[in-house]
């Protein structure tokens, strides 16, 4: 069997284009709470773009250049909007019990995204090369040392932390976001709780 053919057939079957980028959604997708996810994604894009500028000029640039400081400010506030909308998205998905109907793995991938985002933000604080980094690194080292990982994940080692922050963790986030979105599209948007249109739930929809 040709491996390439197999992979292509699997992709076409599992991820059909019209599901990946649908132009129709069920009418119950009808609330502003559905926007928190896309706003989180938009914040991530802003973070990547401002981060790319900061990476191009290197870690000392923004301390000595007014333009650099402004790009850093964009990056700083995008972190705030990223977590702001992510947590609102989390609240919305929780109160919709969006793990129903075989979507539990997507809940798990969202929680993992939240955790990796926290780690990414943490390594960002450590990469600033200012008093904040110094204080966070020295205050945080005891926690990692107590858990036995301080030698391997050494938050005082700038080279290690900076590499994680600008390459590995963003790539991991992007991959996880891709997986998260793929699951949303392949499973479809979760149906309403006690849905009057669902055959097995319609019986007790009137309250």
């Amino acid at each position: 069997m040709n491996w390439t053919t197999r992979l292509r057939r699997w992709l076409v079957r599992e991820i059909p284009m019209e599901d990946l980028l649908p132009d129709r959604l069920p009418e119950y997708v009808h609330s502003y709470v559905y926007f928190f996810g896309v706003l989180t994604l938009a914040s991530f894009l802003t973070l990547v773009l401002s981060g790319i500028v900061l990476v191009i000029f290197g870690p000392t640039w923004w301390h000595i250049s007014a333009l650099g400081h402004f790009v850093n400010s964009v990056h700083f506030w995008a972190v705030q909007t990223f977590f702001f909308f992510m947590v609102l998205h989390l609240w919305a998905q929780f109160f919709m019990a969006a793990w129903r109907g075989g979507r539990a793995v997507n809940w798990v991938s969202g929680v993992v995204l939240f955790l990796v985002s926290i780690l990414t933000a943490f390594t960002g604080f450590l990469s600033q090369q200012n008093f904040d980094s110094q204080w966070v690194a020295l205050q945080g080292k005891d926690a990692f040392n107590a858990l036995g990982v301080g030698g391997f994940f050494n938050i005082l080692n700038f080279g290690q932390i900076y590499g994680l922050h600008i390459v590995l963790l963003p790539l991991l986030l992007a991959a996880l976001i891709g997986f998260h979105l793929y699951l949303v599209r392949s499973k479809g948007v979760v149906t309403p709780i006690d849905d009057p249109l669902a055959p097995n739930e319609g019986a007790h929809h009137d309250e």
Binding site: L39, L45, T46, S73, V74, H75, W77, Q80, N130
Partner: peptide, 24 residues
Amino acid sequence: AFLVVLGLVLLLALLFSSPDEPTL
């Protein structure tokens, strides 16, 4: 959404800047 967030973040960056205390 991207334009909205970008606009919001640019505005916050212009208005409030960001902290950068030198190391001890």
